[in-house]
Design a binder for these strands. Sequence first.
DNA 1: AATGAATGAGGCTTCATTCAT
DNA 2: GATGAATGAAGCCTCATTCAT
Lengths: 190, 190, 190, 190
Amino acid sequence: MARPRSNDKRDAILNAAVEVLAEMGERAPTSKIAKLAGVAEGTLFTYFNSKEELLNQLYLSLKAELRHVMMLGYPTDTDLKAQMHHVWQSYLNWGISAPQKRKVMAQLSTSEQITEQSKQIGMQSFCDLTQSIQNQVDKGCLRDYPPLFIGSIFGAMAEVSINFMVQDPMSAESYRESGFEAFWHAVAIM
Amino acid sequence: MARPRSNDKRDAILNAAVEVLAEMGERAPTSKIAKLAGVAEGTLFTYFNSKEELLNQLYLSLKAELRHVMMLGYPTDTDLKAQMHHVWQSYLNWGISAPQKRKVMAQLSTSEQITEQSKQIGMQSFCDLTQSIQNQVDKGCLRDYPPLFIGSIFGAMAEVSINFMVQDPMSAESYRESGFEAFWHAVAIM
Amino acid sequence: MARPRSNDKRDAILNAAVEVLAEMGERAPTSKIAKLAGVAEGTLFTYFNSKEELLNQLYLSLKAELRHVMMLGYPTDTDLKAQMHHVWQSYLNWGISAPQKRKVMAQLSTSEQITEQSKQIGMQSFCDLTQSIQNQVDKGCLRDYPPLFIGSIFGAMAEVSINFMVQDPMSAESYRESGFEAFWHAVAIM
Amino acid sequence: MARPRSNDKRDAILNAAVEVLAEMGERAPTSKIAKLAGVAEGTLFTYFNSKEELLNQLYLSLKAELRHVMMLGYPTDTDLKAQMHHVWQSYLNWGISAPQKRKVMAQLSTSEQITEQSKQIGMQSFCDLTQSIQNQVDKGCLRDYPPLFIGSIFGAMAEVSINFMVQDPMSAESYRESGFEAFWHAVAIM
DNA sequence: AATGAATGAGGCTTCATTCAT
DNA sequence: GATGAATGAAGCCTCATTCAT
């Protein structure tokens, strides 16, 4: 048998892509990505058939990571607000500690190179969260908005909060809580 | 590099840029933009010294247009909520009727090519709005958040709303009002 | 007005292509062709949109040149055999004096990159010759073969003759006449 | 480089090469050939040291096959014309039933990658035929041309005939016989 | 001022070949 | 022997920018 494909290498390429994309945007050359990943340029193309595929896979991988992080330690036996707060904290912590990944996710979200299919798949990652929001809407705890709408508001508010936290670290904790408070008032029935 | 003469041409180039950028993202070539604008490739560079300058000017121009649109017919002698609602409607109408411009603004906002300075200037367009928000905070009508934070929440909620309106035109008006309602609860003291 | 496109440059590229293709076959790189033509590699692509187009244009240009050469000084008021002999001589002289062009024409004729359309057009160059053959067939001077068939036999015999002339220059004149004799017997009614 | 073991694999590679070369010309990648042959990319290189060697071997193999086919059932005790006609039929049948092989042989014949040596060897395959032609020339049955010249005329006329048969199958049999007739008149003394 | 041909660096991708498994 | 991942040199083509006209 020949050398098997290495997950390490695949990950190294994805990580390198994050770094180069964060620095150069969509114009990040595959050569720079490969070099930073420590592989030959040709090798990149044994793991991803094209630059476009690399970008799409990266997009999905980041979405999956974010989703994973948000669900880590999710408290099942507390009230809705506490649960939401937990997810809020996880999101913000990730966004602050992985600024390049966050930046790249934002870039890719508006990129022409990300296919509609990838966006669909990326969204489906969050369908259990969506479902759980639906349940709360049905119970009358949240305003009667489509759960995806609520989810998008959550994401938008989180992004705004992270931006302010990063730009003004002194007041970071204040933004963190204000953001959640604003979100909560936006969607909860009190 | 002689002085450019025609504002028409400058505008034609900016408009063409919107179209090509919307279709191709950051990889939109200046040649395509020039062609669509009806000028020669070289002519583009008498109006903008470089592609980067073109992108920055476009960014500022779009920000200015949005700001202009939002302030059109601003009602000075009603209550805060009505004022905000007016601006909300203006923003959403613009976003829906100029989807390419909106798309390009989102792209440019995450682009490496837009300088920090441009972002600063773009933000200052809205400083009168910001000032007026500050006044309302001081009067206790809005939560005690920094006015830029409130402004960002406004923008973020508007973007979310437009996305849903565009994607699901049947329920557009419902999203429009739900979005405003959510925003208002997020920031107002009731 | 900007600099106009130069026919000289176009021709230089085509001539360079002949040389490099003769030496390297279809794997001739555009970079070598451009260099030999004395232009930048990018310039090649302002004259030909792609390598494939370059090859097709070259094919047509060679066909046209051959056709032109064959008709130079075509004697209209002699008998058929003398006319054919004239064309024979022209073909062979060209083939011998332009061995690279001949070689490249042979290569391109079997190349995947030459479109069916190019082959059609290339063949139509010779339609007046074909017509004149048809007339002779009708008059009973040539065997009752389709004129294109006779034309192909002509070409094939000429190619064989040139090959032997080139390979064995001492007997060149003998092959030249033997070839014509064989062709004539193949198609003429005596 | 160990010794290859399986003739089956060697043949599979050669057959795959025919197919891929017919479709893609000289730019046929070894990887595609290997895949179609059902072996690993690397395996190809245990059977052929380089792509060039593969092409040369393929060329020789095709020449040998053609030679073999042409001599199958060769009638030794009939007159010259019948013998030639037999060979003619064999050649044409092969050419029509194996169009890819024929196409590839034509390609390789004009390819830079085929060495002079291979061409020599390929020609020698036909030396017994050549010898037999020489005898007929000596006996005054054929024109006094070098036998290789006659052989080349034979090949050229056969190729022309096959081309027309393939392109116009309705008249195939007519081309088949006309072609032979033309060839015979070209070289025979009647 | 306007034009668009010219430039050549650089981008993405392919591919013959090697070599670890 | 067989495999196919790894390599990196090329290959084709694009494009921002310059400059002759």
